[in-house]
């Protein structure tokens, strides 16, 4: 009876957004009299950081400090339509809508600044720290606050903008499946090391080495949150979870977290992540959505690692000790492969 180590690999790509399009999102941006901006959305923050990433996108586009922007979502009386937070569409679809809205508001702010400075709006730049100045002449400047005040109290302009992003709906050919699914893909590769006990059938994930290509990491810590948490979920899908342990039989369905199992804080494996950035041509600042795809490579990588360790193919999830033991017995013992 022994512990066997094995390594398994998997690589995946992932479509960003509802894959046939037809899923619009809108944004409204406006300034208060002091040059502080509100972004109104109907998008949902369920932990992925919707409020935070759209706030950074708005601040970058407006050219104001991120502290000067607040995202208000989701109230159907004040936020414009959004399809919803699913299908990895939040960053991509809503982000693009926010850019369009912020560009319109920024244009008004710059026109107001130009009128105050008596220059051409096309010659103005923002420094991202609350100042607007003439390109190449930083001393000819006005604060974003003063520009917004001038717009509203002297010039009679509303510093506001509207944005929508829509990829029109694609049709699907019934005979060939020809279609235009999504506009960009994220990528990942993952190598998992496991330890399999050939006496108990238990599988422990020891280590994860990954590379994720996310377009552009709009906020690296938010990306890290998704990749760490998502890979944990992938590991959980691989070897812990199911609502129907005897599928397709419905018996023994869990009713609480004592029978619905997930890895706890003592079960986690070190995860060494590398992030690659190949900006999506149509993504907000090149961003794609990392939140869904991060779990996907872990499931097959764990199964492949179990095979590498003891020579048992688990083609039905989850990888339970029972399935591993039955496989080992059917083979007449553990058969380590050591292929990777």
């Amino acid at each position: 009876m022994a512990l066997h180590r094995g390594r398994g690999f998997a690589a995946i790509n992932y479509p960003i957004g509802m894959n046939l399009g037809g899923d619009p999102s809108q944004a409204l941006v406006h300034s208060n009299p002091e040059g502080k901006f509100t972004v109104a959305l109907s998008s949902i923050d369920l932990g992925q950081g919707m409020k935070s990433v759209t706030r950074q996108i708005a601040a970058e586009t407006l050219g104001v400090p991120v502290e000067d922007v607040y995202v208000d979502t989701a109230d159907s009386d004040t936020g414009p339509h959004c399809m919803g937070s699913f299908a990895s569409r939040g960053t991509h679809r809503v982000g693009n809508a926010v850019i369009e809205a912020a560009q319109e508001a920024r244009a008004v702010m710059l026109e107001a600044a130009a009128e105050e400075l008596e220059v051409d709006a096309g010659d103005l730049v923002t420094d991202g720290r609350g100042s607007i100045h003439v390109k190449g002449a930083p001393s000819r400047a006005i604060t974003t606050m003063a520009a917004c005040q001038a717009a509203q109290f002297r010039q009679g302009r509303t510093v506001s903008g509207r944005g929508i992003f829509l990829i029109p709906l694609s049709e699907v050919d019934p005979d060939t499946g020809e279609m235009t699914p999504v506009s960009c893909f994220a990528h990942a590769a993952m190598l998992v090391e496991v330890e399999v006990d050939d006496e108990t059938g238990e599988v422990r994930v020891l280590d994860m080495q990954s590379a994720y290509e996310v377009g552009r990491a709009l906020n690296p810590r938010l990306v890290e949150q998704q990749l760490v948490g998502g890979a944990w979920m992938g590991m959980s899908h691989a070897a812990w979870e199911t609502t129907e342990p005897r599928y397709p039989d419905r018996a023994h369905g869990p009713v609480d977290f004592n029978s619905y199992l997930m890895p706890g804080p003592g079960d986690i494996a070190p995860h060494h992540i590398s992030v690659l950035e190949r900006p999506a041509p149509d993504g907000p600042f090149g961003g794609k959505g990392p939140g869904e795809m991060c779990a996907n490579p872990v499931l097959p990588a764990v199964c492949n690692a179990v095979y590498d360790a003891v020579g048992v193919r688990i083609d039905e999830l989850p990888v339970t000790p029972e399935k591993v033991l039955r496989g080992i017995r059917a083979n007449g013992g553990a058969r380590p492969r050591g292929r990777l």
Binding site: S52, L227, E277
Partner: peptide
């Protein structure tokens, strides 16, 4: 987590102010 900026460097202009920063969650 590490960044591998050497890949696809030609596809990116890394001159942004707020985007790419580890700003705290709102």
């Amino acid at each position: 987590m590490e960044f591998r900026k050497e890949f696809f460097a030609d596809d990116r202009d890394d001159d942004l102010v707020t985007i790419g920063q580890p700003v705290r969650r709102q």
